[in-house]
Design a protein around this nucleic acid. Structure first.
Length: 104
DNA sequence: AGCGTGACGCAGG
DNA sequence: ACCTGCGCCACGC
């Protein structure tokens, strides 16, 4: 199945340290599939809740929690991130410095 | 086998 | 800094 492709994404997500976030694009890049950010989103959507993958550390390039087509997981995501010390600005965006590539 | 869809990203205006 | 349009590509119908 194409699940093996998704496993690369999941593996990349596991590499995101606690208290940090990465964009879908960064995950795709780290997994060796640069430009496939959309597929990362698809893979995470198909991810079982108890997979052990820190999916909540993945946000879009704007630093915003991507809106779901359904479900309430975006609320849970913000909760989990804040629990790790990640802060949001007034517009609900994660500050740049929390991104794994950010030097500050 | 074709068409629309989506947890995205980037370039332009 | 914000909004819009186009590109990407696997999945489901």
């Amino acid at each position: 199945m194409s699940e093996s492709r998704w496993k690369k994404f999941y593996q990349a997500v596991r590499n995101v340290p606690r208290g940090r976030v990465a964009s879908y694009g960064q995950i795709a890049e780290l997994a060796g599939f640069e430009g496939h950010a959309r597929q990362v989103g698809y893979a995470l959507h198909a991810l079982p809740a108890n997979s052990g993958v820190p999916w909540h550390r993945v946000v879009n390039a704007k630093g915003e929690i991507s809106p779901r087509s359904a479900g309430d997981s975006h609320e849970l995501q913000r909760m989990l991130l804040e629990a790790e010390g990640v802060k949001f600005d007034g517009k609900g965006r994660v500050e740049r410095r929390y991104f794994i590539h950010s030097k500050t």
